[in-house]
Simulated assay, not measured.
Amino acid sequence: MSKWLLYQLLFWLMVIWGFNVSAVKILVTYFPPAFMQGTRILIAGLSVLLILLFMKSLRKVTRKNIIGLLIAAFVGVVGHHLCLAIGLMSTTATNAGLILGLIPLCTAILAMIFLNERLTITKSLGIFMALIGVYLIVMNENGRLNDLSIGDLFVLGGVITQAISFILIKKLAANIESRQMTGMMLVFGSLMLLIISFFTESPETITTTEIPSYVWWILIASAVIATGLGHMVYNYAIHQLGASTTAIFINLSPFFSVVGSVLFLGEQIHAKHIVGFTFIISGVILGTGAIKLRYLNKGRMPQVKKAIGK
């Protein structure tokens, strides 16, 4: 696959991931959060594994790696998706989408802590700018945080758990093929979510509610296209383009989250969202080292190409 085609796929994937925030917001109005996410992610995980089975790409996984996958699934699937679903019950898709834009930066911060990556002045500035952006998004009309939505805090929890899972995945990726790892994590995590749902959520909240047919289509599309195929494409792009180049596209996802919230949910965009979005994206670019990557590509292209084997 050519780089240009892969760039286009990544662009459209960011559109889908951005719109998926609105999809989850719709789904939590009809389903209990743990049950909905468990069902949605189980469909996604089985889709990935069926595709890999058809491609004859499934490999045997050791018991040690399965334990690692269970831990990563609990943090990255259960933690992230449950926090996101619960958060969207009491905050807007606009706020959620913009806060989720912190995931690359949060991952970079954790990499500094656990993987001994160096904290530079540029990264420090990026972290500070991103925090300003979040403050602008969640503050009230008077510029204070006294009306901070619990939903915003849950979404922020989803950011942290997702970032932690990326650190775990980075360690597991040395022993397990990325697409198979994704499918297995989704299945493991979805089963955990369904178990949680069985003990914490009442089935009457599903059976007594009349669910329109389009909601089921949203559930299936979100599962198969956004979560299942989406993560396969993203992992393939990381393998072909490198993690740094691929991560830059993530910065488009919050923008399309906002667009989706306006188109599908009728939410209003305020000046604080625009300014906050600008601060977050600038902070993510600085904090994750994207500026440094562009500088290297400009001034030291031969050395970089040699280093990454292109």
Rank of each mutant, 00 (worst) to 15 (best):
V77H: 04
L263K: 09
I220H: 03
V155A: 11
A307N: 04
L70H: 07
I280M: 03
V187H: 02
I274S: 07
W12A: 07
F198H: 11
K3T: 04
S165L: 03
L219Y: 06
A271T: 11
I250Q: 03
F199M: 10
E177P: 13
A221W: 12
K306H: 06
V259T: 04
S90H: 10
R40C: 12
G157K: 01
R144E: 14
T205K: 09
N142S: 09
I109P: 02
G143W: 08
P104Y: 05
H270F: 15
Q37R: 07
I51W: 07
L50I: 15
Y214R: 05
V75H: 05
K60Q: 11
V77Y: 07
I225T: 13
A174S: 13
T205G: 03
M185N: 12
L42M: 15
Q268D: 01
V28N: 06
V15L: 10
N175E: 03
V77K: 01
A221C: 11
R179P: 00
I220F: 13
K25V: 10
I308R: 11
V275M: 07
I160K: 02
V215D: 13
A163L: 05
D147A: 12
I41E: 05
N235P: 10
N140V: 07
T94C: 09
L168H: 04
T246A: 14
F277R: 03
L145N: 12
A72S: 15
A237R: 02
L191D: 05
G309Y: 13
F166N: 11
I164L: 13
S57P: 00
A93D: 08
E210K: 14
L125V: 03
I113M: 03
I132Y: 09
A271I: 13
I66A: 05
V138A: 02
A174R: 13
L131D: 00
I225S: 01
I137H: 05
